[in-house]
Design a binder for these strands. Structure first.
Lengths: 140, 140
DNA sequence: TGATTTTTGCAATAATGTCGCATTTGTGAT
DNA sequence: ATCACAAATGCGACATTATTGCAAAAATCA
């Protein structure tokens, strides 16, 4: 996916948004990061260029428009990511480090489900999270 | 598991707690419910008999002592359950209704994982959550 | 460029969770 | 049974995370 400002702006407009600098920056951040991000992490990366409320609004709007989706909830933080590697209902699993909070997508990790969830229940989405320690926090 | 007050009190004392009425009630709630519960749901069931802060403290203390564990985080709410059906690292999957917030344990639902999470990473716990609609919310 | 509409920043407020401390409640000894 | 001690509770204050209203600013389109 290209990540220059022009193509980001186009992507935003196609999705029905005005291509404001804040939105371009947030979207570019996700594309460059290639990993799930929380509002906190975005704020840290952007500094005070964007208001807290705006980041929340951008994340909600992007998610509603399908530009992002909520990968999982880590402790008290919602973690979002680009949906480019996921189908509508089936998302790849994620890893979350319990020490530093670092997150990663587990694309080579397959999860197979067997069995029924019960009569009358409708499954819409499956979320798998592996918690543990990342290489950096492992030794400590 | 028995759920009368006397055996609950004994269980609490064995775990190193005083068998206060609040703790007996909370533990009894989990045993009778047979499903995961959040602080909010506990408060609703108990009414004003127990303070908010006490419920939080009880849930933390029980979790630390191994009497409960945190099943998953649902939106902004932490959801706890008895660990009687789970190993240390492997917990059965859960279902969460996106409409009413109702939760259930999926004991007949098997999740098989294949592949590596990556070099240097340590997996400690696996959490699987199926989101969807429960029978009651399905038609709406 | 100017008009229109969306988006932002800011401040106020809500929702959720935590902490300190005086008071109350279990517990075990007497 | 009652007493003294330690633990747990209730309450209020505070911390953190998220949302909302509204005036000001920015993007889009004619």
């Amino acid at each position: 996916m290209k990540a220059d400002r022009t193509s980001l702006s186009d992507l935003l407009r196609v999705s029905g948004f005005k291509a404001t600098s804040g939105r371009v920056e947030v979207l570019g951040l996700f594309i460059r990061a290639g990993r799930p991000l929380s509002q906190m992490q975005i704020m840290e990366m952007l500094g005070p260029r964007l208001d807290r409320a705006s980041v929340y609004r951008i994340l909600s709007a992007f998610t509603e428009a399908g530009l992002l989706h909520m990968a999982y909830v880590d402790g008290r933080h919602r973690v979002y990511e680009l949906p480019d590697k996921c189908g509508h209902s089936h998302c790849h699993p994620h890893f979350s480090c319990r020490s530093c909070g670092m997150t990663a997508c587990l694309e080579d990790f397959q999860v197979k489900c067997k069995g029924s969830i019960g009569k009358g229940f409708v499954a819409e989405r499956q979320k798998v999270l592996i918690e543990g320690l990342c290489p950096g926090c492992k030794g400590k």
